[in-house]
Nucleic acid binder design. Structure first.
Lengths: 203, 203
DNA sequence: ATTTATAATGACCAGCTGGTCATTAAAAGT
DNA sequence: ACTTTTAATGACCAGCTGGTCATTATAAAT
């Protein structure tokens, strides 16, 4: 007899609206009322679906990282260095909305908001990304595609940081896609040359 | 006849206090009153020296970037690739207080606070850093220390992004100095191998 | 139509914010 | 000691925040 709604869908829609507001106004400048307006709901309604602004924020971040995680997991083990470099390339080719997310994320990710476990959550994500790269490197070392003297774990984690740096700069500063592509191309070329064992060249 | 104080010094001390509070409590969670308490001054006094919280923040960031700028400018042109790699190494070996700054900075650097020109200010800093690296690369290319096919400008800017990524991860996540050093060592080794022309090795 | 259980509402609140300003304290010159 | 000019103070304010809850609307089952 009761009225019934798709709660999961609702939550999703609220998060979408919240994200939209945050991107436009900035996270700390956005009030819960702003989000409510954007979602065409009353403020009180939001509190039915989320415990508060923080909980909403955490949900947004969780959702985003779950999506990224999926992406990574999908990637198969590369059999050649070039294939791996291609993967790196794809990782750095982020969409506009991902760039927007990053802007907001970095406003959120600070001592004011980030709880200990929240921050570890993100840290672990990058550790997993680093481990993923490390696996690839390690595999490529066995196949003599990458110089053996590299410590796969360290290189993998370093690559994760470096990729993040490039993506971040592209997102935060006004680097055109054209310029970004050129940077990425050169960077990948340099990384490739650095990883390759002192033997076969590639162009 | 009037009472007189060293205003510049005062401003500096207030910024120090502010920075301390921001690092401990987080930027957005810190109130002007908090800063006043930390500086052992009344709230009103702060408004004598700064137009408001935003102005204070901008001053902190300006001061920090001016310091970094100095550092860069000091660096001389490197005559060998190894010398350049050493410079990169030093750049990534940041102090604990710089790491703290970064945490705060990223909380500040978002749509909520960052004005257009503020954000451009930072963007230009990294462009200058990139240009500095590009110069070094270019010079090393003339000296046949770096493969000629690289586009110095792009590589330089990419390096700036990548360095930033590594430093950021070290600052934001709980990466121990030990691990950080290992990451940096491997990364530098990879970059070095990537830049070097296909000829003389180096270990 | 009526019932019923859930969903949605928005006026309301306590608390805190950045910012002001009439008042008081302090140092330098006489 | 007294004056003068600037420095410092902190109670105060308007405005906005996240969050609540008594009330009303809604849809399903009878």
């Amino acid at each position: 007899m009761p009225k019934v709604v798709d709660k999961a869908k609702m939550r999703g829609e609220i998060l979408d609206a919240a994200m939209k507001v945050f991107v436009e106004k900035g996270y700390h400048a956005s009030s819960v009322s702003d989000v409510a307006r954007a979602a065409s709901l009353a403020k009180g309604t939001l509190y039915i679906y989320f415990d508060g602004k923080d909980a909403m924020t955490k949900a947004i971040v969780d959702r985003h990282f779950a999506m990224l995680e999926d992406r990574i997991t999908q990637g198969q083990t590369c059999e050649t260095l070039d294939a791996f470099l291609d993967e790196l390339n794809r990782t750095m080719d982020i969409s506009t909305e991902q760039a927007s997310f990053l802007r907001v994320f970095f406003e959120v990710f600070g001592p004011s908001f980030a709880s200990e476990d929240f921050s570890q959550h993100v840290a672990r994500f990058f550790d997993r990304l680093g481990a993923h790269y490390a696996n690839q490197i390690s595999h490529l070392q066995e196949r003599k595609q990458v110089a053996e003297h590299y410590e796969a774990a360290s290189i993998g984690r370093a690559l994760a940081s470096m990729m993040d740096g490039v993506v971040l700069h592209m997102s935060l500063f006004d680097i055109t896609r054209r310029r970004h592509s050129r940077l990425v191309r050169e960077a990948i070329s340099m990384l490739g040359a650095g990883l390759r064992p002192a033997s076969a060249s590639n162009d």
